[in-house]
Write a protein that binds this DNA or RNA. Sequence first.
RNA 1: GGUACCGUGGCCGAGAGGUUAGGCACUGGUCUGCAAAACCACGUACAGCGGUUCGAAUCCGCUCGGUACCUCCA
Length: 489
Amino acid sequence: MNKLSIYNTLTRKKEVFEPLNPPHVGLYVCGPTVYGDPHLGHARPAITFDLLFRYLKHLGYKVRYVRNITDVGHLENDADEGEDKIAKKARLEELEPMEVVQYYTDRYHAAMRRLNVLPPSIEPRASGHIIEQIELVKKILANGFAYERNGSIYFDVVKYNKQHSYGILSGRNIEEMIANTRELEGQDEKQNPFDFALWKKAAPEHIMRWLSPWGEGFPGWHLECSVMSTKYLGEPFDIHGGGMDLLFPHHECEIAQSVAANGKQAVRYWMHNNMITINGQKMGKSLGNFITLEELFNGKHALLEQAYSPMTIRFFILQAQYRSTLDFSNEALQAAEKGLSRLMAANRMLDRIKPADSSSVQVEQLKEKVYEALNDDLNSALAIAVLFDWVRLINLLAEDKESITANNLVELKTFFRTIIFDVLGMADEQTTGSKQAELTAKLIEMLLSMRLEAKQRKDFATSDRIRDELSKLGVIVRDRKDGFDWEIE
RNA sequence: GGUACCGUGGCCGAGAGGUUAGGCACUGGUCUGCAAAACCACGUACAGCGGUUCGAAUCCGCUCGGUACCUCCA
């Protein structure tokens, strides 16, 4: 029996995951605000929770995975001063806001597809749930935890904190925070600097606006997740994930909103992935040190020595546990690239193994260790380490230095491939894909057969020529006792 | 300033009181027409200083260094 444990940010410890309504699992993850190209930072939560999604399904759960698209309400700056990110981009590019949203949503989807990230079950947009958001504001207002100022509605953190505790997720003490904050800003509408906007009145020039009981305006950023998660997953629901940088204030505010509206928290397990760093520093838009996924894939960025394939990026991310920071460097990415290629070569090698009468290897052990790793808060780094132990064994099996029975071999192949492809979500970039790729593979193999014949005639001039020419085209040729092996680089 | 977290061999990165992490790189060997790959062998690394313990990289304290959040960021 597999028991998945996950680290719950709320309790700050690992807990055995028990879904509310098994076999159903509700999973909500904060998606991107679509105002710019997806970057390496976006890949981390997407891949982390893709792994969770895949693993939960592998364990037999029926998972409804909701990942939103933020297309309104996410402000540039302080909740009072800032401009909506989408609106700003639209203004700068002279586009309709929804054109900006569509464009970057498409870009995001394309990048995710290349990273082999499965699409979520539902991908709701904030702008499509304005009515629900207004309803939630009304509820919070009716319960007395919000107030109106000039057509904007603010959440009353201080009042809320008297009855409940604001800061339980992030471990913050609101009273200390207030005590430590110096008051600036004369004409602030908010009673308290920590209050946050539930609904903002739209200034006359503001393009994105909807009619509400308080006049024309737009929803506050934290509202959308509270609304869309529970709309599709019920209340309460199982897992809410996102980047660690969203822990405060975003997720803290989500909790406050749910409690203020319904008297109880909506989320049972909170999960947060850590950041990707670059030279030890967080990769972030404001720091100007981020690398887009496009740039990684084509190698065009000052920090990049070469292009890195989507699967290299995915593997790189999976080689670290999701709660650790992961430091980006060319060296690390190149190590991931080579390791991945070895893993994929071993996978192909599985088909060359000839069964024996007995087994000198224990497939059961592989299974146990991999499950043990994944069950321990998705320790993909450890799971991959176990797979590499088996890469060695697979290579030995292919050279008849270890033995395996036919049944065990089937078991090994099935499990190894299930974990690599279905659970970790890797793909063999050499063999998968288009008809073109298949044709290329067949052509290469045809040439290599001819080379093999030449070798048998001891016509090494011809055989070396074929190898050299292929090598110039980027095809690495490896001779084997019983033939050959090749790889495109 | 407040709150967390981290410091592991050349690089990345698991582990968390006693047993090999793993990947990449390096070196030597086996195999091979050559090469590559593969396989074998090889590194007593846990920031520093104290303490607890039969035993600490793992627990506690201090010191040093770094990061994140507290404004938007995945």
